[in-house]
Write a protein that binds this DNA or RNA. Structure first.
Lengths: 209, 209
DNA sequence: ATTTAAATTGAACCACGATTCATAAGAACT
DNA sequence: AGTTCTTATGAATCGTGGTTCAATTTAAAT
């Protein structure tokens, strides 16, 4: 009995997963507004009406996609960063993780970085739903820890978060638009370097940590 | 005769300007997709059809808005930066200018930063039209000059552009979403400080490397 | 096997809003 | 004043696509 219910649930949740997967891909490729529900239904091999058995409407579907992606991303982050003790290393690893995730999930990246940005429509409709808030807070926490541990000098952690995230965000935007010809690894190193050492200092003499 | 034609033209171009002004405001407030042509027409006090005497269609109108704003911004930049000789000062002034412009033209800022970002639709439809390209190139040029003059150490100017612009862009996004409670001046100083001195180097912290 | 319930279908509905166009108003010129 | 050309109007058109729901299939329960 329990078995049957579980099997049913997993069948249901499989279809749900199929739908969000199809939705993420399609939203990323065509943009939210250009995507028809029927596009998603076709890609997930279900009828149009079926979408409405799993999601309230098109907006809801998009939000569920965001939630899924960001939960996934946060879990991966938590998991990887736990092993590291040095707070500065944690910060740098967070950056790497963000970049890795985007490189490996181009569609998700496009959604988070481009479609999510566009949706003041959404913030206004769902006032408490500013989906990357948690993610940003996480980075801010890492910044604070690095400061408290004396690994970097005392700067405003919120500000630092903004600079780091803003730099990454814009780099990745450029990368997405460039059709991936830009080398994100090089960017990551450059960002880390400039943030770390600043713009003044040695001209082309390099030291390593 | 020439006078009459001119007067006619200026009447026409006044109406055109009224329309872009109304469009910028409305697009900024409601977002491109949520804005109806009739909204813009009403705000500009003309009939719906009149919009189509001045612009090809809704997309075209948005593009013309971008062009107008960015031209305006570039002119202001050129004008102000000519007076300055020190390349590093030029860079910092560019940042100030960008922030000032956004503070004083909230609607324009919202359009450039949020709506423009969202429109891969547009890049794909109009392949050579990535409207802030010129603006970014301008900043890159300033970075190069500051490097060549030895005012900052040798870093990749494109990368530096990305970091500066990305930081500003994201800060201003946060500012726009925060309903302007954030202090952009403070952000500007913070960004300049961190970029300038980097994250290491002790101020009043006990520990360092 | 039969009944009952759940899940799925996809054609039809319907609201919405960009765009058009026949008509009117206005301006310039003779 | 009348003619012509330009500019403006806004109601009607028309395609689009999100959403619904009666009908059908599939699965569970008795």
């Amino acid at each position: 009995m329990a078995y049957e219910i579980e099997s049913l649930n997993s069948k249901k949740s499989k279809k749900r997963a199929d739908l969000t997967k199809a939705a993420i891909k399609t939203f990323a490729q065509k943009g939210f507004h250009r995507t028809k529900i029927s596009d998603i239904a076709k890609k997930a091999k279900v009828a149009d009406g079926t979408v409405y058995l799993y999601f309230e409407n098109k907006d809801d579907l998009l939000i569920k996609c965001f939630e899924e992606m960001l939960t996934d991303l946060m879990e991966k982050a938590d998991q990887r960063l736990q092993a590291i003790e040095d707070p500065l290393e944690k910060m740098l690893n967070f950056i790497d993780l963000h970049i890795d995730y985007c490189e490996k999930n181009r569609d998700a990246a496009k959604l988070i970085i481009i479609e999510l940005r566009q949706s003041p429509e959404f913030y206004e409709k769902y006032p408490d739903f500013w989906p990357i808030k948690n993610y940003l807070n996480y980075l801010t926490k890492l910044c604070k820890e690095a400061i408290d541990a004396g690994r970097i000098r005392e700067v405003d952690p919120d500000l630092l978060t903004t600079i780091i995230f803003g730099s990454l965000d814009f780099s990745i935007t450029a990368w997405l638009l460039s059709k991936s010809t830009i080398d994100l690894k090089r960017i990551r190193n450059g960002v880390a370097d400039i943030l770390h050492k600043g713009l003044i200092g040695d001209t082309n003499n390099e030291k390593n940590d």
